[in-house]
Design a binder for these strands. Structure first.
Lengths: 356, 356
DNA sequence: GGTACGAATCGAATCGATTCGATAGTCTGG
DNA sequence: CCAGACTATCGAATCGATTCGATTCGTACC
């Protein structure tokens, strides 16, 4: 219904013809790369306007130049779950800022894990980023390596060609546990994020040391090991998702028991899980931190939570920017190495000396 | 440091040469489009394996076929803010599901609004989606139209070439307000989302009828008009962001006044804002719904909220899928028209008869 | 006045595939 | 035994730009 539907696409050739110059000259006008007389440039621009030319075709340009201006951002789960955690969102945001400044766009790619469909085979990208710690191996990596596309990751996938931003998950989580021990807590428990891509559905469940060691997700595994370093006899419960509802369920599982068996300190692997645990505690009539101490991980902003969590401070936006930086350097031909990303324990009001 | 860095990229030509067939035959093997003898196909595949060929170059393929397999998903703000609302995330997720099924990927594009840099000029996309209601006009639209790229939107941008999913914002919000009137409430107030891309920073503020009429964001404007249809004398407050913190600030502004002036019913334009208002009320010692009734919009899942909001039910995932469907039909050459998306009032426990 | 130089422009090769029409070879049936 | 149908393969054109080396032209300098 538009007044004049263009019958065929306008190309640089058409513009050049109308301006009375060669295609190469017209190209120079748009790329601004070569010396072009002002008058000529103006004629070309006028012709482009007349013909409604929208600029050089990005595909053709990409083919010739060998770069597409897009970076694949790979997430494992459905977007809904991947970005429900404010921490993931912060990382994405930081990454977006950095890439934006480089004129790169993000191609959101879901890695379903079935080696079958390869969502990347059909797309031209200049680099790939795995911004969230996922499973240790991804079939996508082999493909990317074969295409000689640089890869940046946040702890996963584990592969020699992936440049990583590395967090000392184990030590950090041990710090949180040690903090509780220092406060006199003796019965500690731990709530993990999912240990594998498809955790057993249903309510949170207690997991064994062996299951920890075999966990497919490195971040969950390392944090659990850090907890065990400090509290070797502590109970460990796996949430099937790292969100408030699962955290609350895990909290109820741990806390809805006779007082003598009840842990007094709970180390959660994420702030959302910690918030859930706190909700569980309070709904059972237990006060935080008087009766129960709780720690989180990430230090995200939860305006609806009436506590300041004791947690591991991990600035997500900065992490995302760092990922972006590594991407830039790889694209510039540099050879950056894995980069540590420091995190620290932040004291809040959800931990206090053990009761009694 | 990889053992054998390929000196030059492997192309279809190399594979064809090694397999002893023509380029065209090799192409047929990968696209599976033409009749190829099993033995030949096998030889080609073997050659590809030998040479570490990662499949046809997506850029070249895109150029020849005229489609890139990517869809631009345009959001206005920084990603961090755009997807902080679970509703936005749900829409994105539904859209992702639908596009995934079509073999399309999402190119996340931030529309900064400055007509200067055009993030889309450099990228090949087959369609563009504006999944969240944003400002009425975007300079990107003209560019997309010139490139004859189909566009789908959720209420914005307003342009003849954009196919929309349409929500009766005004009527829906009026329903919520009417519900409060039916319960006997006489002093009503309204908390709006930002009315324009860059709302005055600082705390929420009361806005005039004129500012409503001039609002750049159609959804905020229409909802406010719906509120006014029912409560022409109600107070209206604009939040500078649609999140819990701003909702709480707006709530305090409205409720921290002498009881005689205090509204007994507050209609918020989003669930997050409503949750914030509830927090403000409770921190002032007011009970919801006994003292104050509050309504939201969207019916998102807020596991941390100890209420079931009375709200407008707007299934975000379904909305996203609908956007995906329209995209599919446009790409298939169909000519779909704007599609209504029904929303309904859902009663929860945050509204009750007016006190006294 | 002729040569050398720089600026502006152009022609043609190239990026790496897809696809159409042509050709060679195989099989069926009358 | 040959016309007709069908299968497998190939050559060449094409998608729409970018870019390198060559060409043209005017000017400055000796």
């Amino acid at each position: 219904m538009t007044p004049s539907r263009q019958t065929s696409k306008v190309t640089l050739k058409d513009v050049a013809a109308r301006a009375g110059v060669s295609i190469s000259t017209a190209s120079l006008v748009f790329s601004g790369r070569g010396p072009v007389a002002d008058a000529t440039a103006e004629r070309v621009r006028q012709a482009a306007t007349d013909l409604d030319y929208a600029g050089p075709d990005p595909t053709a340009s990409a083919l010739r130049q060998g770069r597409s201006g897009a970076v694949a951002v790979v997430v494992e789960e459905r977007l809904l779950h991947a970005f429900r955690d404010p921490f993931a969102l912060a990382v994405l945001d930081g990454l977006a800022q950095e890439l934006d400044a480089l004129g790169l766009s993000m191609l959101l790619v879901a890695d379903h894990g079935d080696g079958e469909s390869n969502p990347l085979a059909a797309h031209a990208v200049d680099a790939a980023v795995f911004p969230l710690c996922g499973r240790a191996d991804s079939s996508l990596v082999d493909h990317l390596v074969a295409r000689t596309i640089p890869i940046v990751g946040a702890g996963a996938p584990a592969h020699g060609s992936v440049v990583h931003v590395m967090v000392e998950e184990r030590a950090a989580q041990a710090d949180a546990a040690q903090h509780l021990v220092d406060l006199g807590h003796e019965r500690l428990a731990h709530v993990t994020m999912p240990l594998a891509p498809t955790p057993p559905p249903g309510p949170p469940r207690t997991v064994s040391r062996g299951e920890i060691a075999d966990a497919a997700y490195a971040d969950a595994r390392e944090r659990a090991l850090g907890f065990l370093d400090v509290a070797p006899t502590g109970t460990i419960v796996e949430a099937s998702r790292a969100d408030v509802a699962e955290g609350e369920a895990a909290g109820r599982l741990l806390l809805d028991v006779p007082a003598a068996e009840r842990p007094t300190g709970i180390v959660a692997q994420s702030d959302l899980l910690a918030a859930g645990v706190i909700r569980a505690a309070e709904s059972l009539g237990l006060r935080v931190p008087d009766d129960i101490s709780v720690t989180g991980f990430d230090a995200v902003d939860l305006p609806w939570l009436d506590h300041t969590l004791t947690t591991i401070e991990q600035p997500g936006e900065a992490k995302g920017r760092l990922l972006g930086n590594l991407t830039r350097r790889l694209l510039a031909g540099e050879n950056p190495s894995d980069t540590p990303f420091p995190v620290t324990l932040r004291l809040g009001d959800t931990t206090a000396p053990a009761p009694h």
